[in-house]
Amino acid sequence: MIWEVFRQEKQGDYHTHCGNVHAPDREMAKQFAAIQHGRRKPTNSLWVVPKEEVGEIDADDVAFGGTTDKGYRWATSYNPDVDHAEEVVESEGQQAEAEKQRGDA
């Protein structure tokens, strides 16, 4: 039987998947997990779960984050080649002129 192992490095951290172990029962799986996944890195706790009990929900099952496009929230959607608004360009010019005047004073 395959058991999935999740490791928590420090108390209060999230548990993250670190691998799996093959064991006939829960107690052996916990022992194997402690040996294989708990010794190599700092570990606060391990979760050992039968693989069949791990459920998956993917994008085919549900629309994550709703249906509204919110790509503007991510820097990856910023396109520097698009013309900027006139006010922004004017403001940049005014700021540069103000800095120049402060430097001359």
Rank of each mutant, 00 (worst) to 15 (best):
A34R: 05
A34K: 10
Q36R: 07
Q36Y: 13
H37Q: 00
H37K: 04
H37N: 04
G38H: 01
G38Q: 00
G38C: 00
K41P: 05
K41Q: 10
K41L: 12
P42V: 07
T43A: 01
S45G: 02
L46Q: 02
L46C: 04
L46H: 04
W47K: 09
V48W: 02
V48C: 01
V48H: 01
V49S: 01
K51T: 08
K51Q: 11
K51D: 11
K51N: 12
K51C: 11
E52K: 08
E52H: 11
E52I: 12
E52N: 14
E53A: 12
V54W: 11
V54R: 01
E56D: 08
I57L: 15
I57W: 08
I57V: 11
I57T: 12
A59L: 11
A59Q: 11
A59C: 10
A59T: 15
D60E: 15
D60I: 01
D61P: 09
D61L: 04
D61G: 06
A63N: 14
A63V: 14
A63H: 08
A63P: 11
F64C: 07
G66E: 03
G66F: 10
T67H: 14
D69Y: 01
D69A: 07
K70M: 14
K70H: 12
K70C: 14
Y72R: 09
Y72M: 13
Y72D: 15
Y72N: 06
R73G: 11
W74M: 09
W74C: 12
W74L: 13
W74K: 08
W74I: 07
A75M: 10
T76F: 07
S77C: 08
S77M: 07
S77G: 05
N79C: 11
N79M: 11
N79K: 13
N79Q: 11
P80A: 09
D81S: 10
D81C: 07
V82A: 06
V82N: 06
D83W: 03
D83L: 13
H84T: 10
A85K: 10
A85D: 13
A85P: 10
A85N: 09
E87Q: 06
E87V: 14
V88N: 10
V89H: 01
V89T: 08
V89I: 14
V89N: 00
S91L: 14
S91V: 04
S91H: 04
S91M: 12
E92H: 07
E92Y: 13
G93P: 00
Q94C: 03
Q95D: 08
A96Y: 03
A96N: 00
E97S: 05
A98Q: 14
A98D: 12
A98G: 02
A98S: 05
E99R: 15
K100A: 03
Q101H: 03
Q101A: 06
Q101W: 02
R102Y: 04
R102C: 04
G103H: 04
G103T: 09
D104G: 04
A105H: 04
A105I: 13
